[in-house]
């Protein structure tokens, strides 16, 4: 299922403690074969325990699949000799791991106080309007965008910082938003 097919889904986790009837209970295609497996094996040599490779392994999953599904959590658990419940506890701690599919472009606007004092809320509104997502955490109908407010991006002197996937934009103002979006396919 591509993000586009998913339609509007919440990006930030819902009450994420394994309730029945998970919406994404699809067959999981293993991530850790071939190159990703070799990459993980190389990472494992950096740590004295297998567990320590958990965060890097989850990053690999997210890079390969765009999000971390329960199936992926189970696979990571198996690869690192952990239990799926343990992995899930860790995944839900770190907000950068997506527990649901998100838009092709994941837009994070910092609205913590220093940026809030410099008009970050207007930047958020501009993104919601110009991406057509309208609501925070909702993916646009074409599957292209998800916009969320994020806590401090550590670039407060460049208010308002915005991340679009891995790309960092500094000193974003509402009038720059259309321009930033126009460069995204």
């Amino acid at each position: 299922m591509t993000p586009a097919e998913m339609g509007a889904v919440h990006a930030e986790s819902h009450a994420a403690h394994g309730g029945a009837g998970h919406p994404h209970a699809e067959e999981h295609r293993p991530v850790f074969t071939g190159a990703p497996r070799a990459e993980l094996d190389a990472l494992l040599s950096r740590y004295p325990t297998r567990m320590a490779a958990l965060l890097p392994a989850l990053w690999i999953v997210q890079r390969e699949r765009g999000w971390v599904s329960e199936g992926a959590m189970a696979e990571v658990a198996q690869v690192l000799d952990l239990t799926p419940a343990y992995v899930k506890g860790v995944v839900t701690f770190y907000t950068m791991y997506h527990q649901h599919p998100v838009g092709r472009y994941f837009v994070q606007v910092c609205t913590t106080s220093p940026c809030g004092a410099c008009g970050a809320d207007d930047v958020v509104r501009a993104f919601l309007e110009h991406t057509g997502t309208r609501e925070l955490g909702v993916t646009s109908p074409d599957g292209k965008f998800t916009v969320i407010e994020v806590e401090c991006l550590g670039a407060c002197g460049f208010a308002t910082p915005v991340m679009v996937n891995d790309e960092f934009h500094e000193s974003v103002t509402p009038d720059r938003v259309p321009d930033i979006l126009s460069k995204l396919e």
Binding site: A20, T83, A85, K88
Partner: peptide, 22 residues
């Protein structure tokens, strides 16, 4: 020594969680 329970989420959203099917 069978870690099937976890703390899920953070802050006041935190709950005791488990993995679907386990």
């Amino acid at each position: 020594q069978e870690p099937v329970l976890n703390v899920s989420e953070r802050g006041d959203r935190a709950v005791i969680g488990k993995f679907e099917g386990q």
